[in-house]
Design a protein around this nucleic acid. Structure first.
Lengths: 335, 335
DNA sequence: CTGAAAGCGCTTACAG
DNA sequence: CTGAAAGCGCTTACAG
């Protein structure tokens, strides 16, 4: 089944140049010549060799996606996996194939792999250090970052407006009359967690409510188990809070588990607000009030912007920010 | 930064043949020649062009993964995404890059894409029709199927021992004295759902308990919402059951949500057992008793077996079955 | 509209 | 141990 353009040329009685023109659909081809070629292709079940085509055309129609995360899950991660799904979808539409790799934020191994494969562009998800960013810049390969952390204004960067999201959460909780609250803040070196917590606190402060450090638990990771531990620690410190804001849903869900284990109920005894609106947030018991972050849109836009760059348009705006939306569910009381 | 082997040859004062030998690490190279070449590579930050290498060596070191699913989520799916994570991990170890695509079970579009890219092998996840299987067989490209449905004994096929899993679930429920039960069975055209339900019923029958059709709800999809609807339907039919077995966790979780909405509790009023042991099964409230399916091991093995085939070993056993394990959590009562 | 020639960046025998 | 030559399967100008 691995025929070449020459087999097709022989069978259809034309030159390989003509065969090439029909499969790549550029240049003039007479309609009878085209027909004979098409027939031969059909007959041999010929599939053009994309490797050879890439070799000479200098584009592979492949895009690399690297997710920089230390721990599993990665592709199946409820936040990053969602972005990946959207990337896959949009790439398919535009005719790109996607390489998926995961790596540590400081390693260039995946990057080298993909650069050697001569991908047309790269989508970098989550946090990577500036050294790596510079490495990509020097690689001459178009790339965009999604939900990363960089101040580099040369870099195309798609993020959620996390600070605004924190404000939304605070405004909602304030509207519910929740004045005594606690925060479970994920890793502060992550832009998202930092800004979410910042926006939240700022809004409370502006409403005349100061939060002291005792009410804030700084989590080491952004995972379920950490939220679970966080509530226990918070509860040891003080029983004096009516509600919790967690900087992501996984943490919030972990906290809810710990709350129930103490014999308390959500939202009756303690109300909880998360962040991200992962799928589970709508399935948990109770369902979780949260801030929706634009995972699907970020994924789609990332591919679109990268595609623009690949086609030579470098004048796009560098920072693309997506607006969060409050989703009220059952972990907060109805007014 | 896009230099070629010739640039390296020029700088280091050797022929390109020698450069080739050092980057591909085969053939003899004198140690001083090697050193000069390595120096030049370092200096120019040269990255060998994998496309050109693939062109002549006839292997790309790329593997394609196609997940055959109609609906989102796909990469982020709690079951298939987990398998994908394992594939990514093992592939990285062995030096393969992974193309990820999703497609409908009857479409060959992704297949063609990947075949044209001349992947060294293919991993096909979930269900695809026999016509497509035949298509892959005729493609001459090594491939393995994971958690699919095929009776084709030529095809390397990795599956969970779902029937045994159904038995395990039944044995556990029987040991708890649960005799009046209901089943929520996912789409029966899926091998997994069919066998899980079959193994479960068989075990009950062997213990002298017949289940009538009224106690079984056949779900249209394997998703959360469907489990939710299923419980409502079951509850309309009869209130006479103490426990529910669902053929996957998502369905089980949906049912639990519906149970709570009726003002009932799990496991106090109704006990629930799921299947798969997705991450969320350990996070839900209550945590879910379930049957663990070997997602990670299947993913790892799939790559390993494919790698064997790629290297010419075609004598592997075709059917690889993984043993399920009962995970007791809080959606069933302790004895 | 179509064909012959050159070349993409490598590897692979083949000499030496 | 090393170099020159041929070739992988295409596309891209260039003639005609």
């Amino acid at each position: 089944m691995k025929y070449t353009i020459i087999d097709i040329a022989t069978i259809s009685g034309v030159s390989k140049s003509t065969v090439s023109r029909v499969i790549s659909n550029k240049g003039y081809v007479g309609s009878d010549a085209r027909e004979k070629v098409l027939l031969a292709i059909e007959k041999l079940q010929y599939k053009p060799n994309a490797v050879a085509r890439a070799m000479v055309s200098r584009h592979t129609k492949n895009i690399g996606v690297i997710i920089y995360r230390q721990h599993h899950p990665i592709a199946s991660h409820p936040f990053y996996g969602k972005i990946l799904d959207a990337i896959l979808e949009k790439a398919y539409e535009l005719g790109y194939s996607i390489f998926v790799m995961t790596d540590k934020e400081i390693s260039s191994r995946s990057a080298d792999f993909l650069l050697e494969k001569r991908v047309d562009g790269l989508i970098l998800i989550s946090r990577l250090n500036q050294e790596l960013v510079d490495y990509f810049k020097s690689s001459q390969t178009p790339f965009v970052m999604v939900n990363g952390t960089t101040d580099d204004s040369d870099v195309i960067h798609l993020v959620n407006d996390d600070e605004r999201g924190g404000e939304l959460a605070a405004e909602h909780m304030l509207s519910l009359g929740l004045t005594r609250i606690a925060i479970i803040a994920g890793p502060q070196e992550h832009r998202s967690h930092f800004l979410r917590s910042k926006g939240f606190q700022k809004t409370y402060n502006q409403n005349g409510i100061e939060l002291d450090e005792n009410q804030i638990y700084y989590a080491d990771t952004s995972q379920f188990e950490e939220g679970y531990k966080a509530f226990q620690a918070l509860w040891e410190r003080s029983h004096d809070f009516q509600a919790i804001f967690a900087t992501n849903d996984m943490i919030a869900l972990g906290a809810i588990k710990a709350i129930y284990e103490k014999g308390l109920q959500v939202p009756k005894d303690i109300e909880v607000v998360g962040f991200d609106d992962i799928d589970y947030a709508a399935m948990s018991n109770p369902t979780l009030t949260t801030i929706h972050s634009a995972k699907t849109r970020m994924g789609h836009e990332a591919v679109l912007m990268l595609d623009e760059w690949i086609h030579g348009n470098t004048s796009q705006k560098k920072m693309q920010m997506f607006s969060p939306v409050l989703k009220i569910r059952n972990s907060t009381k109805a007014k």
